[in-house]
Design a protein around this nucleic acid. Structure first.
Lengths: 144, 144
DNA sequence: CTTGACTCTATACCTAGGTATAGGGTTGAT
DNA sequence: ATCAACCCTATACCTAGGTATAGAGTCAAG
């Protein structure tokens, strides 16, 4: 598959693919004698993964780390497990934050409880993470 | 409260606060005769909200919209409800994506099922959203 | 064997979201 | 009344993540 087709299928622009390659997110593809890049069909899923992960708030650097988790050989396995565990923490923190925001937004839709004053507002409060020596009864838990 | 104190309490830099003000994310604070900005204590929560929402993948423009939901007067209420409903959609899509990624990461930690080949990898697959005419049995649902 | 659609590299440019610096005024403690 | 530690505006600069352009080569159909 040529770069133009990959770009179309993955919904990105050709320059973006070359940019990802320079950033080490995409492996260097095979080249024809002419220098044209030749991609494998799996690359489509990889590029879509990158775009999706970006929408979820990961930087390209972090996405690179996620991708590298895939390519683990048995030698680096403990390292990979540790990195994956750390990423799970990140992901769960994000889910908690989003759940809290969803709850607040629902309150707004259902009851418009957030009145006309500047007073305590569920939306702003929603993301006010617990800090040390504060107890917050309504902290959202990460659902299974 | 002066800008330096706000910056310290909210964990951002002073220039960032002035930048947010220019972008319309923070209301223009009162000024002393000297021109010094005087903030209310609530502003700390507002700024922290901005930072947290950013980590969750919202742009400053979107965050501005979220904040504006707070300041609804009864006139604009239907509009506010519609916008809030749309934001809930966004948030739920993000939660689904993150849940899928968490599942994949757990698989990696628990079993290291993702072997040494380039073959189908749970991490990459995890975020491969269903497109028309594809059925994906394991699509994550948004938990309540 | 030419023509149109594709690709290559290199370089420049763009937006978002800041961060730093220059040049100057304010405040409050000593 | 001075001095450090603050604040002001304006402007320049920076990184991430692209997007566009120039100038040149490649490929397949007619």
């Amino acid at each position: 598959m040529q770069i133009g087709q990959l770009a179309t299928l993955a919904g990105v622009n050709i320059q973006t693919l070359r940019y990802y390659e320079r950033q080490g997110l995409l492996p260097e593809p095979d080249r024809r004698a002419s220098g044209y890049r030749e991609y494998e069909p799996e690359t489509v899923a990889l590029v879509r993964f990158v775009k999706r992960a970006q929408e979820l708030g990961f930087t390209l650097r972090e996405i690179g780390e996620l991708i590298s988790l895939r390519d683990n050989d048995s030698v680096r396995r403990p390292e990979v497990r540790a990195l994956a565990a750390a990423k799970i923490e990140d992901v769960e923190r994000k889910i908690r934050g989003l759940s809290a925001m969803r709850t607040a937004l629902r309150g707004l839709v259902d009851a418009c409880s957030c009145g006309n004053g500047m007073s305590a507002c569920p939306i702003i409060e929603a993301l006010d993470e617990p800090r040390a020596n504060q107890v917050r009864a309504h902290a959202a838990s990460v659902p299974d």
